[in-house]
């Protein structure tokens, strides 16, 4: 039982990170209907920004409180990825809006290749380890829960609440939903569609940066190709939860995190990714719109 709860906590932590990345996928897909394949690499850029800021901070202010360091890392990583995602949308996706549907998918895959190779070229191909930032652990009976796990889960919960509020209750969210429904009509009714889409990309990127920073804090290491696997899993999470749905993305992320940690704990770690992907295929085949997605009616 303790073992199970322990794995549950691990799974929730991992799932929160997937969920944070998945929100970016789901928002972008919802609003312009494209798979932003480069989003996983935006997450990786976030982790690297946090890493570099951490190195600079510790060399200038050796005794900086960890909480402050984390906050600075988080903010700069968010600014960084936001700027990147904004630029990418402007340069690579916007010219293709309304064109052939496969074109933006190919540019996104190209962008993903560019970003990971850019970091490989500029920062080197090796693993980048940093010392552990948060080391506190709490014991509840036989269960050990670390502070970093609590931080990650709590932060995800808070961010999801804020985002849910923004999308459902603010004029910005209304503009986003209108653009999602019918871009032309939204533009005719005075919604600045370009700006709305840009903001969506920025919001997704900011969350990816949070996920990247948390990932760095949790595992203490970053590599140039860290974007791919978490990216694919986060996309899986978004689809699993029902693409376009915010709570769905987080739910999908948590599910995947749980499956991964429970599968590794009780079966074999070797096939944990196979389990995730098989689950994705299963869900899509039997419920193609995901868990919380709106059913799509075939129009004849």
């Amino acid at each position: 039982m303790e073992y199970f709860v322990q794995q549950l906590a691990n799974g929730l932590t991992l799932g929160s990170i997937y969920g944070l990345i998945a929100i970016g996928y789901t928002m972008v897909y919802g609003i312009i209907g494209m798979i932003n394949f480069a989003h996983g690499d935006i997450f990786m850029l976030g982790a690297f920004a946090a890493l570099i800021v951490f190195l600079i901070l510790t060399s200038f202010f050796a005794g900086i409180p960890v909480a402050l360091a984390l906050l600075v890392m988080l903010i700069i990583a968010m600014l960084m990825t936001s700027l990147w995602n904004w630029t990418i949308e402007r340069v690579a996706y916007r010219p293709l809006r309304g064109s052939f549907r496969l074109a933006p998918l190919i540019t996104a895959i190209g962008m993903s290749i560019v970003l990971s190779n850019f970091i490989q070229v500029t920062q080197g191909p090796r693993n980048k380890p940093i010392p552990a930032l948060v080391t506190d652990v709490y014991h509840f009976g036989d269960i050990t829960i670390s502070l970093k796990q609590i931080i990650i889960i709590a932060l995800t919960a808070v961010l999801l609440t804020i985002f849910w509020y923004v999308v459902n209750k603010t004029p910005l969210g209304r503009a986003q939903r209108a653009t999602e429904q019918d871009r032309k009509m939204a533009a005719l009714l005075g919604v600045d569609v370009d700006r709305t889409i840009s903001i969506t990309f920025i919001m997704g990127a900011a969350l990816a940066a949070v996920a990247g920073t948390m990932y760095l804090m949790y595992y203490g290491v970053a590599t140039f190709n860290d974007g791919f696997i978490p990216g694919v899993k986060a996309f899986t999470a978004a689809v699993l939860g029902g693409i376009g749905s915010l709570p769905g993305a987080v739910l999908g992320g948590l599910l995947i995190g749980l499956i991964e940690s429970l599968w590794s704990a009780y079966f074999t770690i070797a096939y944990k990714d196979v389990a995730t992907f098989a689950l994705l295929a299963f869900v899509l085949i039997f419920k193609p719109t995901g868990i919380l997605g709106r059913p799509e009616v075939e129009k004849v």
């Binding site: 694919v232 992907f277 098989a278 899509l284």
Partner: peptide
Amino acid sequence: FPVLRLRGDYLAIVTLAFGEIIRLVLIN
């Protein structure tokens, strides 16, 4: 066979998953 009913990006992501599954099986 299983992906016949799927469309668009869902089909893309499931085929990606199948590709990864085959590779992971080859590894493991």
